[in-house]
């Protein structure tokens, strides 16, 4: 039963990792941008949630109403103001700039919020649980997982059934020809980054409710997100969800063997999958 339980908990944790990863997957898919600051932006969202809930007395989940649009706006402005200038045939400039951004965000958070660990207070939600057939699941992890599935489903639907999704795919295919169709690349990229950070906002709030955070925890969130994206296969959002679940289950099973193996076993499974299937479990079908 312990093992079944570990798989269940790992699956639910995988939902959170998929949320970390979905934004990364989206911007890589649309503009081949690897955002090193992604983990720090998740943490930034958690702090924005903290400010909203302490200053305005909002429940952290209600604070999403403010944090999601705020992160969308930050993403759009960041892309149009800075990142678009770094995009070109060379992939190094955006890597360097987002690396610099990561450092700036961390230090900015340190200055404003200090290094003390913080947590978002979600009241009863944190401890509520459901039991069935000898298994117990927390309500919060369940909500996180369902939200992840819903967000990824919505993104997938947006990609294949809306004008915005069509614009994303066309721009991803051929930037200059998309421009001929009246799609201004700078704006399309801004929207993609805005959307990416809107998802990141949800990830950040859930992170902050689940665990305590400080300005330095972004790096490992970035790693988990990357691992989920790569396990699932680049540019495939359902693959990203699967990748998050594989990572979460691996960690949970490792932790079941010995608590100290939890994080390590996730990385090992990632490396094994990378070695055996370099394009991930569900690579995007070409042509």
């Amino acid at each position: 039963m312990d093992w079944v339980n570990a798989i269940l908990q790992g699956t639910l944790l995988g939902g959170l990792y998929a949320l970390f990863a979905a934004g990364l997957s989206l911007i890589f898919g649309v503009m081949r941008l690897v955002n090193i600051a992604h983990g720090d932006l998740i943490v930034l969202a958690a702090y924005l949630g903290l400010t909203a809930s302490t200053a305005l007395g909002l429940h952290p989940l209600v604070a999403l109403v403010l944090v999601v649009p705020a992160m969308f706006a930050i993403g759009y402005v960041l892309q149009r103001g800075i990142l678009n200038r770094t995009m070109g045939d060379d992939i190094l400039p955006p890597l360097l700039v987002t690396f610099g951004l990561s450092i700036i965000i961390q230090n900015g958070l340190l200055t404003v919020y200090t290094a003390d660990p913080q947590k978002l207070q979600a009241g009863n939600l944190e401890t509520a649980s459901l039991s069935a057939g000898g298994l117990t699941v927390g309500v919060l992890p369940l909500i996180v997982f369902i939200t992840a599935v819903a967000i990824i489903g919505a993104l997938q639907w947006m990609f294949y059934h809306t004008a915005l999704g069509r614009a994303f795919r066309a721009t991803s295919d051929r930037q200059d020809i998309a421009q001929l169709m009246g799609l201004n690349r700078a704006h399309v990229f801004g929207l993609a980054m805005g959307l990416s950070l809107a998802v990141t906002a949800v990830a950040g709030i859930f992170l902050g409710i689940r665990t305590s955070f400080d300005p330095a925890v972004g790096g490992s969130r970035l790693i988990f997100g990357f691992e989920a994206v790569i396990i699932g296969g680049l540019g495939n959002l359902w693959g990203t969800l699967a990748g998050g679940i594989v990572l979460g289950v691996s960690q949970a099973l490792g932790g079941q063997i010995h608590p100290s193996l939890q994080i390590l076993s996730g990385h090992i499974v990632f490396l094994v999958i990378l070695a055996v299937r370099p394009r991930g479990l569900f690579p995007k079908m070409e042509g």
């Binding site: 069509r166 066309a170 295919d173 998309a178 009246g182």
Partner: peptide, 16 residues
């Protein structure tokens, strides 16, 4: 656009 169907290629041409 290879990711778009024939009809989507046409629709996106009319996007303006």
């Amino acid at each position: 656009f290879p990711s778009l169907s024939v009809e989507e290629n046409l629709i996106i041409g009319g996007q303006i």
